[in-house]
C-alpha cells in the first residue's frame, strides 16, 4: 500500500480496535488513553505531517525480502517469548502475586478514592509517573529542537486549508465548549472514574486542534500563543516536581503527599489532584506544540 493517507487511517482504526480490546479486558483507563492518543491525536498529527511530506510513498530501491525477513524473525522471536508467559488471567502469574493484591485490597482505605488505577498511577507509583511525564516533556523538547517552536510562517487567522465550510463551522462551534468541558471533567474526575491528566491534556489539545483546523490556520495561536507552550510544558513538570520537593523539605520521602494537609487523607487527595494537574498541563502543551510545529510550516517544493 503506497497511499500514506490510507496507512494513517488504518493506524487510527487499529488503535480504536485496540482500545475496544482494552475495554473488553476491563481496563477502562488504558482504553481511554488509547482511544484519545492513538486513535485521536496521533491520526491528526500523522495527517498534518502528510501535508508536508506528500501523500504517496516512494518505491524503495532495495528488494522487500530483507525487511520481510527481519520482521518475520522478530515476530517469531516474540511469539516464542510468549510461550513462557503465564496464561491470561492466571491467578498464579507473578504480576498478580507481587504488589497488586496489596493495591487492590488496601487502595480504597489508604487513599480514600475509588479508582485504583489513579491511586496506583499518581500515588503508589508517583515516581514512575513523574518519569513518564518527563518522557513526554522530552518528546516535546525534541520537537522544539527539530522543527522550532515558532516554526513556519506567521499565522494566517481565518484562512483554512479546507476553505469555507459553513456546516463544519456551525457544528464545531457548538461542540468545542463541550469538548473542553469534558476535558476538565476527565481531569478532575479521575479519582472517581476512568480518566486523569494524560487523557484530559490530550482531549483539551484536541479541542484546540479542531478549532484551528476548522476556523483558520493560526486561530488557535491567538488563543494559546506558541511561545507559551514550552513554558506551559515546563510548568506542568514543575508542579509535579515541586509537590515532591515540598515533601522533601518537610523531612518526608519524595512525593509523600501526607504533608500537604493536616489530615493525611486530605493531603493525599490534594497531592493526587495537583500531580494530575501537572500531567494534564504538560501533555496539553506538548501535544499542541507538536501540532503547531507541523501545521505552521509550508511544504517545501
Amino acid at each position: 500500500m503506497r497511499d500514506l493517507f490510507a496507512v494513517a487511517m488504518m493506524f487510527g482504526i487499529y488503535s480504536l480496535l485496540t482500545a475496544a480490546l482494552f475495554m473488553d479486558l476491563d481496563a477502562a483507563d488504558v482504553a481511554f488513553t488509547e482511544a484519545a492518543v492513538g486513535a485521536g491525536v496521533t491520526t491528526i498529527l500523522l495527517l498534518s505531517s502528510l501535508r508536508l511530506t506528500g501523500r504517496w510513498e516512494r518505491r524503495p530501491k532495495h528488494s522487500p525480502l530483507l525487511p520481510l525477513l527481519v520482521v518475520g524473525v522478530t515476530g517469531a522471536a516474540l511469539v516464542y517469548g510468549t510461550l513462557d508467559m503465564p496464561h491470561l488471567g492466571d491467578p498464579q502469574a507473578p504480576v498478580h502475586q507481587h504488589v497488586a493484591p496489596h493495591y487492590i485490597e488496601n487502595a480504597p482505605q489508604e487513599m480514600g478514592i475509588p479508582n485504583i488505577v489513579t491511586a496506583v498511577l499518581a500515588s503508589y507509583r508517583g515516581f514512575d509517573t513523574l518519569g513518564e511525564t518527563l518522557v513526554i516533556f522530552t518528546a516535546g523538547l525534541s520537537v522544539f529542537l527539530l522543527l522550532g517552536s515558532r516554526a513556519g510562517g506567521r499565522p494566517r487567522p481565518g484562512k483554512t486549508a479546507i476553505g469555507e465550510q459553513p456546516v463544519l463551522r456551525l457544528v464545531v462551534k457548538v461542540l468545542i465548549p463541550f469538548i473542553l468541558l469534558f476535558a476538565l471533567y476527565v481531569q478532575l474526575h479521575g479519582e472517581y472514574g476512568a480518566g486523569g491528566g494524560f487523557q484530559a491534556g490530550v482531549i483539551f489539545a484536541t479541542g484546540m486542534v479542531l478549532y484551528d483546523l476548522v476556523f483558520g490556520e493560526g486561530d488557535a495561536r491567538l488563543v494559546v500563543p506558541a511561545r507559551w507552550l514550552p513554558r506551559l510544558a515546563a510548568f506542568g513538570i514543575l508542579v509535579y516536581g515541586s509537590v515532591g520537593l515540598y515533601a522533601l523539605l518537610h523531612g518526608r520521602p519524595f512525593l509523600d503527599y501526607t504533608v500537604l494537609a493536616e489530615d493525611p487523607m486530605v493531603g493525599r487527595h490534594l497531592g493526587i489532584l495537583l500531580v494530575e494537574l501537572g500531567i494534564g498541563i504538560c501533555v496539553f502543551a506538548v501535544v499542541l506544540s507538536i501540532f503547531y510545529a507541523l501545521s505552521g510550516r509550508r511544504r517545501q517544493p
Binding site: I162, G163, Q165, V167, L168, V171, V174, L175, F178
Partner: peptide
C-alpha cells in the same frame, strides 16, 4: 453527540471527495 457528529462526518467526507 452522535446525532451532531455523524451527519457532519458524512458531509465532510463528501466535501473532501469533491475537493
Amino acid at each position: 453527540f452522535l446525532l451532531a457528529t455523524n451527519p457532519t462526518a458524512s458531509h465532510a467526507m463528501a466535501k473532501a471527495a469533491l475537493h
